[in-house]
Design a binder for these strands. Structure first.
Lengths: 204, 204
DNA sequence: TAATATAGAAACGATGCGTTTCGAAATGGT
DNA sequence: ACCATTTCGAAACGCATCGTTTCTATATTA
């Protein structure tokens, strides 16, 4: 039976309650550190809450006290490694598009981030909260910023054309780095730039 | 303990043993039909062997007798809906590239095929046999054929450039139809053609 | 008829889930 | 100092599913 009017706030950054035993930062760090280790060693699917609790020297109840699902837990564990989001406007539209592409390539090249993002994208139906959280925090801001950059680089691209090009960028990088697990060689950025901005770069 | 020198062949198309009770086609059809129904209703992850056995009126032992993993089972259940593979050479390179693209779009637009393919691609580390089987049966022939078509359409494309363009096609369609689950609108084929064959179509 | 192979029923131990209960520890308010 | 509050760790719960095993019955061919 649910407690209902228990304390509902749970994120670390929230305000602390005025009284009572404070949250153990040692336990939190042990949990997130264990999650990172196990993710890198075994991957997302083989990560179990039981194993995290045991290796971190913590009880399962403590984990579920602060993270209600495995998805929340791993998203927070990888937070610092995910650098997908808005890109600044520099004045050079081509550079902005390049930065948009490089954000995805850089993040997808980090082992921990790639494991977590792959899980967030591919467990869509099974953990909708994780998928939505990932989209809202990272993908949507990236798309908005990238759409603006592409709009500046391709003034007559059209809105649906810009959305399509964002799918080309994200889908191609996802395919090469996360599905095929190919290293980032052969100038992926340059090739993608040439594909999405065909006529802009006539400098060679 | 494993039996070892038991009969190892298991696919329906293999030769039947000379003596003994023949395999029940009714059970096979009931199993595969149930798998298709449950996949469409609940998805791949929520499909359990126990539920299939119960709904098909069959014992679990019978299922595991013929399919050793869930991946094998669903790949066979969706076999008829997956039409990714070689495309014929028509003499018009642009048409061949278009056919290469349309194969992926058509297959990914079918509900059952899209569920199974999404599972095969995204459970890579957890069911390596399923992933490898899908790649060997469908993806590799498609890539070989598509690379040839792209090579004819882009004589100076270069091998790595052709592989990159195959990743653009597959990754973009995967992103739009399987990850974002957007319907196939806005002329996906035409847009992809324009992106991978920029200068060929100067007919407008 | 004998040998062979499949089918179904039922149970096994193992694993992980999410939850609950309990007692101990650590803080702030009074 | 004492109490209310909150977290922590340990342990156990019922549940689901896994892959396997055992047993008996059935179907087919040599």
């Amino acid at each position: 039976m649910r407690r209902g009017l228990d304390c509902e706030r749970s994120r670390m950054s929230d305000e602390r309650p005025k009284r009572g035993r404070p949250r153990s930062r040692a336990s939190r760090d042990a949990i997130l550190g264990t999650v990172r280790r196990r993710l890198l060693a075994d991957g997302y699917q083989r990560l179990t809450m039981e194993a995290v609790a045991e290796e971190a020297g913590v009880s399962k109840a403590t984990i579920y006290r602060w993270w209600t699902t495995k998805g929340e837990l791993v998203l927070e564990a990888a937070e610092a490694e995910i650098s997908i989001g808005p890109v600044p406007e520099t004045g050079d539209p081509r550079s902005d598009v390049e930065a948009t592409i490089d954000q995805v390539i850089d993040t997808f090249s980090r082992p921990l981030a790639s494991i977590v993002i792959f899980a967030a994208i591919t467990t869509g139906g099974d953990d909708p909260v994780m998928a939505r959280s990932f989209r809202d925090r990272y993908v949507h801001p990236w798309r908005a910023s990238g759409a603006a950059a592409l709009g500046r680089a391709l003034p007559d691209g059209g809105e649906s054309g810009v959305q399509f090009l964002l799918d080309v960028i994200f889908g191609t990088v996802f395919q090469r780095l996360l599905v095929l697990r190919e290293p980032n060689t052969h100038g992926l950025t340059e090739r993608l730039l040439a594909v999405v901005l065909p006529a802009v770069d006539a400098s060679h």
